[in-house]
Simulated assay, not measured.
Amino acid sequence: MASSSPEELLKSAEKRANSTGGWFSSSSGKLEEAAELFKAAGNKFRLASRFDEAGQAFMRAAETEIKAGETDYAANTFFEAHKCFKMARPELAVVALTRCKTILVERGRFRQAADREKNIAELYKNEANDPRKALESYEQAGEWYLQEGAQATASGCFREAATVATEVGDYKRALERWEQVAQMSLESNLTRYSVKDYYLNAGLCYMAIPDYVACGNAMGFYANQDPSFPTTMEGRFLHSLLEVCEAGDVAAFDERVQDFDRTKRIIGWQATLLRNVRKAVQEEPDLS
């Protein structure tokens, strides 16, 4: 096996997989041997940086393990396939991870299924460039982590979901997630310091919708949940923005944002969010 090429190993694997057990060997034994040969071929393809072919070999190994009744091994092998596909074809990495996750769910291994769903979300976000699917996967992973008592990991997934929802302009969904993360963060002294940022993000999402009445109500709720919030820099900034948004004063809005930016740099998706809040102010009808 050591001197065989990956193509030769694949050929041998297919032959074993398609053969039936004889007098002295079982069909499951042949399938297990075939799976090992497929994996050996996959590892040789991987060493040669032929990642697509490596992934395909591991997929065949996993499917063969399922036929042999070794579903737990198959889950691990699908995960190996995803590692290879991630280097060349992210869309197939998602397929491999989904197969892995499905087995884990069927086996009741939800903590591991959550890990795989999180991996899928990261692929959609970073390689496959499909933020809406990333959002769905982050939310699903977060729910499973919650069920398993992994609060911190769940919060991290919901925070990623909130960020993605904000980036794609799904502000209602985003603010619900920001508020959820804030609530979860209030439960620990280690994470309370971030609550002010989450409330600010949620408040800005209300303004981007725009729904200034709901934003004002939400700010009252935030103050009730965390009495220190109104006196923080973020709390004062949010309050001042709501005032100028309700007044329709774009110049004052720009001034407030510039003042905040001098102290705490506004970059990336938060800058885009603030531009959309400003746009909403410009588009509000003047009823005076």
Rank of each mutant, 00 (worst) to 15 (best):
S26H: 06
C245W: 04
E14F: 11
A34R: 11
R262F: 01
D72M: 08
P285S: 07
F237G: 04
E284R: 12
A182D: 12
N217D: 15
T102D: 13
A280E: 08
A93P: 04
L200G: 02
E148M: 13
E36Y: 06
L238H: 03
M87A: 13
F229M: 04
N119M: 11
P285N: 05
K279R: 13
A280Y: 02
Q270G: 04
A182T: 14
P230I: 00
R132D: 10
H239Y: 05
K30I: 00
L104E: 09
F229N: 07
F221V: 15
A48G: 08
E283V: 05
N119I: 01
A128I: 03
I66A: 02
R159K: 14
S3F: 07
M87F: 07
N76K: 12
N18G: 14
D259V: 02
L274I: 15
L104D: 03
K67H: 05
Q151L: 14
S27W: 01
P210C: 08
R89F: 05
K39T: 10
F158C: 12
A134R: 01
N224V: 01
E255P: 00
E127V: 03
D170T: 07
V250W: 02
V181D: 14
V164F: 05
E127I: 01
A161L: 10
A182M: 14
K11C: 08
E167G: 08
G69K: 07
T191G: 09
A114T: 02
L242F: 02
A128F: 02
F45S: 07
A152G: 09
A34Q: 11
L135D: 08
L242Q: 09
D72P: 00
A40H: 10
Q180K: 15
A152H: 13
A17C: 08
Y124V: 02
G142N: 08
G169A: 12
E143P: 01
P227K: 10
S28G: 04
F78T: 00
Q270R: 15
F79H: 10
D261H: 15
K39W: 03
L274Y: 10
Q183H: 15
L92S: 07
P285F: 04
L146Y: 04
Y145Q: 06
E176L: 15
D72A: 09
L37P: 11
L190I: 03
F221C: 13
A162F: 04
L238C: 12
R50N: 14
T231E: 13
P227F: 03
S228T: 06
R99M: 07
K279H: 10
A75P: 07
Q112R: 12
E117D: 08
T20Y: 08
C245K: 06
F78H: 03
A88C: 07
L9R: 11
V95T: 09
K44P: 12
A280D: 05
R159N: 14
A114G: 11
Q140K: 14
A40Y: 05
R265N: 07
Q270I: 08
A48Q: 15
A128V: 08
N224W: 03
P90N: 03
S240Y: 01
E32C: 06
R99N: 10
V281T: 07
A93N: 06
M1E: 13
Q258P: 00
F229A: 06
K101N: 09
